[in-house]
Design a protein around this nucleic acid. Structure first.
Length: 426
DNA sequence: TCTGGGGTCCTAGGACCC
DNA sequence: TCTGGGGTCCTAGGACCC
């Protein structure tokens, strides 16, 4: 049996850990630039006229009228809380798959336990130690865990946040209950297609033939069907594989025409991603650079372009990667346009201990010691203590603002929670 | 005025190899 | 008359996830 443990309303819940006085208020977390609503607590979701993922400015009235608390995204906090969440889970089994920032699959291959009791124990532990509430679905396959977890969350009064699918009867009942569009792995595209065929729930989906599913939904769809039938096809991936791509693309705070500022942003993104690249001991063999105007504008000239810069020698050296990314930017940059976003992605990643040489390029590793020292300083003090001059000093001119970001309570010494001031006075 | 960001996997088709 | 067979690698596009 597997378990899926999932933090309820994760981002808002993580904010509320440090704001106990605000727990009964509606609250949302917004996307970069305070654009869209990406997370909300139950109270906010139940408000009249509320819509998840809507642009915040469209819901201005609803948010103001109900005094909804708004937060800029604070991923540094969420990532750290997530790390603590996984640590708690690892006390229950050493087979943990970190599935996302707020979810993990566990292998419950443990003899003589009552799964419901065990789930409740996990739930109580996370609540006690982290002040976060979770939902837990337990079943013989991962896809069925997802189904069980939905039931656990939907019918909290009956399930107390833990639901186990451990019989054929429960499986069929659960699948008949689950609308096709809510099935893990069925997105809006396939949901639409299946509804046209009068497939309305997960159970009906499992009644299709294997060959139809294979032909129309590839092997991915077929695996899902088997999983829902109770035949496990998706293994627990407990070993964290290195990423195959590391990228960043973000909207600017305002539209930007100035090449120098866009170059700064590009350099700064590469610097950030190259750090992640080195931390997973990889090198990149190519860089994607993309540039985009504001697609929502009806008056501005529209432009979208991307290019792939192949590197003669794979590398994880910031200076070298930045230089090549800027070459890419130069290829696609057009004067006279107002840009909304630049993005870079390091691709073709492989381990840094097996770099393929190049007969025709003189590889000069003289920067690698410098790079190490910079990384050490940035680790010891703070991110960006030392950075490239090409990443510039004008961040405030292009970076989107995060006016509503809460303190990074658990990762910055100068943003620690002040108990008497921050909590008791609230 | 304001409209998210960061990933994975699969397939088809085109180019190439011997 | 008859025009192979078995591969790899890359890219674009489409699907999905949180």
């Amino acid at each position: 049996m597997y378990a899926l443990v999932d933090i309820n309303g994760a981002f808002v819940a993580m904010e509320m850990v440090f704001r106990p006085a605000d727990r009964n208020k509606p609250a949302v977390v917004l996307s970069n630039g305070d654009g869209c609503i990406i997370a909300a607590n139950k109270i906010a979701k139940q408000l009249n006229g509320f819509a998840m993922y809507a642009p915040a400015f469209q819901l201005e009235d609803v948010l103001n009228k109900n005094n909804v608390l708004r937060f800029s995204p604070n991923f540094e906090l969420y990532v750290d809380m997530s790390r603590r969440f996984i640590k708690e889970l690892s006390f229950f089994t050493d087979k943990v798959e970190v599935y996302s920032i707020d979810e993990a699959f566990l292998d419950l291959d443990i003899k003589n336990i009552d799964f419901t009791d065990y789930g409740q124990l996990i739930k109580r532990t996370i609540l006690k130690n982290l002040d976060l509430s979770v939902g837990i679905g337990i079943a013989p396959t991962k896809a069925l865990c997802k189904v069980a977890s939905k039931i656990a969350k939907k019918f909290t009064e009956r399930t107390n946040n833990v639901y186990v699918i451990d019989s054929e009867e429960k499986r069929v009942k659960a699948l008949k209950w689950l609308p096709i569009g809510d099935v893990w792995g069925i997105g809006s595209g396939f949901a639409k297609k299946l509804l046209q065929l009068n497939i309305k729930n997960a159970y009906q989906f499992t009644q299709l033939t294997d060959s139809w599913v294979l032909k129309n939904m590839t092997v991915v769809g077929l695996r899902l069907k088997h999983e829902l039938e109770g035949k496990s096809c998706l293994q627990l991936e407990t070993i964290k594989e290195p990423k195959k791509a590391i990228g960043t693309e973000k909207a600017f705070g305002k539209l930007i025409a100035d090449y120098e500022l866009i170059k700064e942003a590009t350099s700064s993104y590469v610097e950030y991603c190259a750090g992640k690249l080195r931390r997973q001991n990889s090198v990149a063999s190519a860089i994607v650079v993309l540039l985009e105007t504001n697609s929502f504008s009806t008056s501005d000239e529209q432009y979208y372009n991307r290019t792939v810069v192949s590197l003669p020698i794979a590398s994880n050296n910031t200076t070298y990667l930045v230089k090549n990314a800027v070459d890419g930017l130069n290829r696609i940059f057009k004067n006279g346009l107002r840009y909304k976003r630049v993005g870079i992605s390091l691709i073709g990643l492989y381990p840094d201990n097996s770099i393929q040489g190049n007969l025709f390029v003189n590889h000069n590793p003289k920067h690698s010691n410098l790079q190490k020292v910079i990384d050490q300083l940035n680790l010891k003090y703070e991110q960006d203590t030392i950075r490239l001059a090409t990443s510039g000093l004008n961040k405030q001119l292009w970076e989107s603002k995060a006016m509503l970001r809460s303190p990074r309570y658990t990762t910055r010494l100068n943003e620690l929670l002040n108990i008497s001031g921050d909590v008791l006075n609230r």
